[in-house]
Structure formats: C-alpha cells, structure tokens
Design a protein around this nucleic acid. Structure first.
Lengths: 171, 171
DNA sequence: TTACTCATGTAACAAGTTACATGATTTA
DNA sequence: TAAATCATGTAACTTGTTACATGAGTAA
C-alpha cells in the first residue's frame, strides 16, 4: 500500500513525466493545491523506498552531478492504479483544517467571530485567485485537482454565507 | 504552534468537556469526520507534550487505575484560540485524497473509468449516510464539522456529475 | 565571472501508526 | 462471576519536516 505522498509522487512521475527528484520536489513546492512542502527529506526517502520495492527505476546519467532519470516500473504502475482506484480511500474526507476549526468559530462572541470569519473569507478569496493564476500557467492535466480545490473553497464560502445569514435572522 | 492533532485534542477537551485521554481517543476513533484513528501513541504523546508546555493540566484522581483528569490551562486556551483563528491555516485546502486522485481517473479508458467512478460515488453516498447517522446521535457542537463534511461530499458528487455530463455530450 | 537554476543529498528531529501489555470498574 | 467498558500506557516503526551542505550546468 502506498502512502498519500508516495501516490502523489508516482502520479507526478507517470502522468506528468517528471523524471528527477528535483523536479518532483519543485512541483510540490510550487503547487497551491498540495500541502506538502516538497520537503527533500520526504521526497528523496519516498523515492528511495519505492525504488527498493521495485516500483521506481532510477538510472544514473553520465552526469558529473549524478542526476538520476526516474521512471515508473510495471509494478509501480499497478501500485499507482490500485492506490488511485481504491474507493474507500478516495471517498474519505481527509484532514481539513477549515472543518476542524469550524466548531470553535461558532463559540466566539459576535464581534470577534465576525472579524475572524472576515479574515478567513479573505484568505479563501486569495487562495481562489492563486489557484486560478496557477491554472492559467499549467492547464490540462492538473485541471481536475484545481477544479476540485475551487469547488471546495466555494463550498466553504457558501457555509460562511449560511452562518452569517443565520446570525442576521436572529436579530 | 500547535499541530492539527494537538489543536483537535485541545478543542475536544475545552469545548466538548472530554477530560481523560481515553475519552478523547475514543471520540476520535468513533468520529466519521476525523481521519485520525485515535491511535494511543499519538494521543497520549500529544497530551504529554502539551502538558510539558503548560497547555494542559493533568490531575491524578485517587483511583487505583491512575485516571488523570485533564483540563486546559489559560495558556492552552490562548494557544487553542490562536490555532483556531489563524486565517492562513484555516483557508488552506488540506490533503484531500479525492482531489489527489482525480486527475488519474480521467486518464482511465471509458469503461474502467465508469466502473471506478461508480464505486467511488457509492462510497461517498455511504459516507454521507454515516455522517447523517452520527449527527443524529451527537448533535449540537460537532454540527459545523459534520455540515462541512456533507458539503464536501456533495461538492464531490457535483464534480462527478459534471465530468459524466461532459462524457455524454462528447458522444 | 557572477548569478541563477538544477541536482544531489544528509542529520536531527517531530509526529503518527500499529500492536501489544496491564489492570480497575461497572454492569448483566 | 463473567463480560464489557474504562483507563493507563510503551516499544518499534514509519513517515514527514526543517535546516543545512555540496556542487554542476547555464545564461547574462
């Protein structure tokens, strides 16, 4: 079984054609959707792990800096497929920082709640703008993921609208 | 700075009045929304960590099994507040297993894609049912989180509808 | 030749999982 | 008194983060 990071790395290699650890790392660091920092420790060791399991092939180039051309083996392709198509994991809600905090916001007194929610709404708008800018640059293959991020952010805005609506009614 | 698990534990203690490590563990294990398994290793060590930082107070009862009554200190309350109200973290999209896989599903050939998406849609419907059942039992304070989980799942269903719609049009 | 980008990593640490061990208290 | 529940944890492991070190290739 692959971890979430392993699956994401393998997918990056297989579907986006990124073929060095550095490129994968950078892609993660730049993507607004992915939470991982592209931290070297995680990426390099995940790749090494998958290499040992025969999921990834690393062929050194004749290159003084020791660049390794990465590719996904047949076994790797199968593992990626199983990881991607597992319905239980696909349908699980994940760890959502917004959802985790939502109950707490409702315990704040009205003026503070209003100001906190305003700041959060603002941060969401910024995130939406960043996703749209990123989509313009990258397009195509990551489209689905970006589309879903936008849908998530819009659902959060709708929730914020709903609780603010309730508040106004209560007056 | 609190981790997501530390924040969730502190919130559980402060807002839901759960006052032993065991109760917190069990609550996590039972909740359909939270990804954490309520694994003892994580919960006990997070609590010990927060105790050392002065965020949590653990008072042993005169109890042969060494039960400790947990409570959140003033410093803990402040830390929880800061954690909950940080707009950048609140607005971040988190690690969403569905989103992470979505691009891959679109690369599958039509018949397989249809069957995979059907299975996933099914799992989502089940998750929705589980959340509703859980809401009926627990109500009130966790309502916001459950509401948001339902909104997420509905947004996913809407996305599935959208891509299936596209497919039909293409014919 | 200077600066930037590409590319490799490691070491120390923090956080979370899994599987197990232990026993007290309560309820049927 | 047997079973269920409440309650403590630890140990070995895996995973991910942070901060750093090193140097090659390329474009100005």
């Amino acid at each position: 079984m692959l971890t979430e990071l392993e699956g994401a790395i393998l997918s990056d290699m297989f579907h986006r054609g990124r073929d060095t650890a550095f490129k994968i790392r950078r892609a993660f660091a730049e993507s607004p959707s992915l939470e991982w920092k592209g931290s070297a420790g995680a990426v390099y060791s995940a790749i090494r792990r998958m290499e040992h399991r025969g999921l990834v092939l690393a062929v050194p180039l004749d290159d003084a800096r020791g660049t390794k051309r990465l590719s996904v083996t047949d076994a790797g392709r199968d593992a990626l497929h199983d990881w991607a198509c597992d319905p239980a994991r696909s349908a699980s809600v994940g760890i959502d920082p917004f959802r985790l905090r939502s109950g707490i916001w409702l315990t704040l007194d009205a003026p503070e709640r209003a100001s906190v929610l305003r700041a959060i709404r603002n941060a969401i708008e910024q995130s939406i703008a960043a996703h749209k800018a990123y989509a313009r640059l990258h397009d195509t293959i990551e489209g689905a993921s970006i589309d879903l991020s936008l849908r998530l952010q819009k659902a959060r805005i709708a929730w914020l609208d709903a609780i603010e609506g309730e508040e106004t009614e209560e007056r």
